Every structure is written in structure tokens, then in C-alpha cells.
Amino acid sequence: MELAFTGRVIEWRGPAPFYFVPVPDEESADIREVAAMATYGWGVIPVEARIGETSFTTSLFPKDGCYLLPLKNAVRKPRSITAGDDVSVRMTVLL
């Protein structure tokens, strides 16, 4: 399953700051349809994502009926992505 969307980067401050792009409602609904086949536990969904020319693998986290795409520092820092920025994401759910 391939998806493309634009989202605003959010920051979650725990013991260390983490950055995420919320997956929009429509795309989250599509992911929920294949979630049982894709998850490896705890409701997380493995994906390969691309922002600009940077590809990375990670897992979506379920949150309030949608999903959050974590942004690794290796993706964020070279592109100077921070909270409040809008980013375009291309993403493949790994089944």
C-alpha cells in the first residue's frame, strides 16, 4: 500500500524530544484496513517513508484512531525540519 500526504511536524517532549508527522484521517483509515496483516505487535505498522530525497524505514504508532510517523534525527536535521514545518511524505506500508 502506497500513500502520499502532507502533514505538520509535531513535537512530543518526554525524556527526550521526539518529532512526528500525523497521518491524515483518510490515509489512517486506509492503513487500518491492512493493519492486522502489517503489524508485528502493539499496533505499530512498519513502513518505508520518503521526505524529499531521503528514504527511511520506521514504524507508525497508533494514536487516537490515527497514526504518527516518527521522524528520525538523520532525516530531520539535514533538512532542518522542526516542529511546525509542513512536510510532504510518500510512504509504503510493509506487509
Results as ranks from 00 to 15, higher is better:
1 M>N: 07
66 C>Q: 15
36 A>P: 04
39 T>F: 07
25 D>S: 11
89 V>P: 08
69 L>M: 06
83 A>L: 00
34 V>F: 14
14 G>A: 11
19 Y>E: 04
88 S>F: 05
93 V>Y: 07
54 T>H: 12
22 P>T: 14
89 V>G: 00
22 P>W: 13
13 R>L: 03
74 A>G: 13
4 A>D: 12
47 V>T: 12
61 F>V: 02
31 I>R: 08
50 R>S: 06
43 G>E: 04
66 C>V: 05
43 G>L: 11
93 V>D: 08
49 A>S: 12
51 I>Y: 06
66 C>S: 15
82 T>V: 10
79 R>Y: 10
17 P>C: 02
42 W>I: 02
81 I>W: 04
22 P>F: 10
27 E>H: 01
29 A>W: 06
95 L>C: 13
2 E>F: 03
2 E>W: 09
5 F>M: 09
6 T>V: 08
94 L>K: 10
7 G>E: 05
85 D>V: 04
1 M>F: 08
6 T>C: 03
50 R>M: 10
79 R>V: 06
54 T>V: 15
78 P>H: 05
55 S>H: 13
31 I>N: 14
38 A>W: 12
92 T>H: 12
91 M>R: 02
94 L>G: 01
19 Y>H: 14
12 W>K: 11
14 G>R: 03
72 K>S: 10
86 D>H: 07
81 I>N: 02
52 G>D: 06
95 L>Q: 04
94 L>F: 08
84 G>R: 08
46 P>K: 08
26 E>K: 12
45 I>M: 09
80 S>I: 01
33 E>S: 14
20 F>W: 13
95 L>M: 14
33 E>A: 09
45 I>A: 09
93 V>C: 05
42 W>F: 13
74 A>S: 09
27 E>F: 01
76 R>K: 12
35 A>S: 15
79 R>H: 10
2 E>C: 05
65 G>W: 01
28 S>Q: 09
83 A>P: 02
27 E>I: 09
84 G>Y: 13
74 A>E: 14
8 R>V: 14
22 P>N: 13
65 G>E: 05
48 E>Q: 15
11 E>R: 15
58 T>E: 01
42 W>T: 09
90 R>V: 10
42 W>L: 09
38 A>P: 13
42 W>C: 01
73 N>H: 04
53 E>S: 09
29 A>N: 05
19 Y>K: 00
